[in-house]
Simulated assay, not measured.
Amino acid sequence: MIGKLCGLERAYQDSTPEIRYQMRQEKAKPVLEKLRHWLDKTLPAVPLTTLLGKALNYLHKYWSRLTIYLEDGRLNIDNNIAENAIRPFVIGRKSWLFSDTPRGAHASAKVYSVIELAIHKNDKTLNWE
Rank of each mutant, 00 (worst) to 15 (best):
Arg65Met: 05
Arg20Val: 02
Trp38Pro: 01
Ile119Asp: 10
Lys124Asn: 09
Asp14Phe: 03
Asn76Thr: 14
Leu70Phe: 00
Pro88Glu: 00
Arg74Tyr: 01
Gln25Pro: 14
Lys124Val: 04
Asn84Pro: 01
Ala118Pro: 07
Leu32Tyr: 06
Trp38Glu: 02
Arg65Phe: 03
Asn76Cys: 04
Ser15Gln: 11
Thr49Val: 05
Gln13Glu: 04
Ile77Ala: 05
Gly7Ala: 03
Asn79Lys: 10
Lys34Ala: 09
Trp63Asn: 00
Asn84Glu: 12
Leu43Thr: 07
Ser95Leu: 10
Asn84Ser: 05
Ser95Glu: 12
Ala109Cys: 14
Glu33Cys: 07
Val111Ser: 13
His37Tyr: 08
Lys27Gly: 02
Ile81Ser: 11
Ala45Asn: 15
Ala107Lys: 13
Lys27Thr: 01
Leu48Gly: 09
Asp72Tyr: 01
Pro17Gln: 07
Asn84Met: 01
Arg65Ser: 04
Val46Gly: 07
Gly53Glu: 06
Lys34Arg: 12
Ser113Ile: 02
Asp78Tyr: 06
Met23Phe: 03
Leu70Lys: 00
Asp14His: 09
Ser113Val: 06
Arg103Met: 11
Tyr58Gln: 08
Ile2Lys: 11
Val90Tyr: 11
Leu66Arg: 00
Met23Asn: 01
Thr101Asn: 11
Lys29Arg: 07
Glu9Lys: 07
Pro30Trp: 04
Ile19Leu: 06
Ala11Asn: 08
Tyr69Asn: 01
Met23Ser: 08
Ile19Gln: 04
Met1Leu: 10
Tyr12Cys: 05
Ile119Gln: 15
Phe89Gln: 11
Pro47Ala: 06
Ile2Arg: 14
Ala109Met: 08
Glu26Thr: 06
Ala107Gly: 11
Thr50Gly: 08
Arg36Cys: 15
Tyr58Gly: 10
Trp96Pro: 04
Lys4Pro: 12
Asp72Val: 01
Gln25Asn: 10
Tyr58Arg: 14
Ser64Ile: 12
Trp96Glu: 13
Tyr21Thr: 01
Pro30Met: 05
Asn127Glu: 12
Gln22Tyr: 02
Tyr58Ile: 09
Arg20Pro: 15
Lys121Gln: 13
Ile119Asn: 13
Ser113Asp: 07
Leu97Asn: 04
Val111Cys: 01
Ala107Arg: 14
Asp100Thr: 13
Asp72Glu: 07
Leu70Pro: 00
Asn79Gly: 03
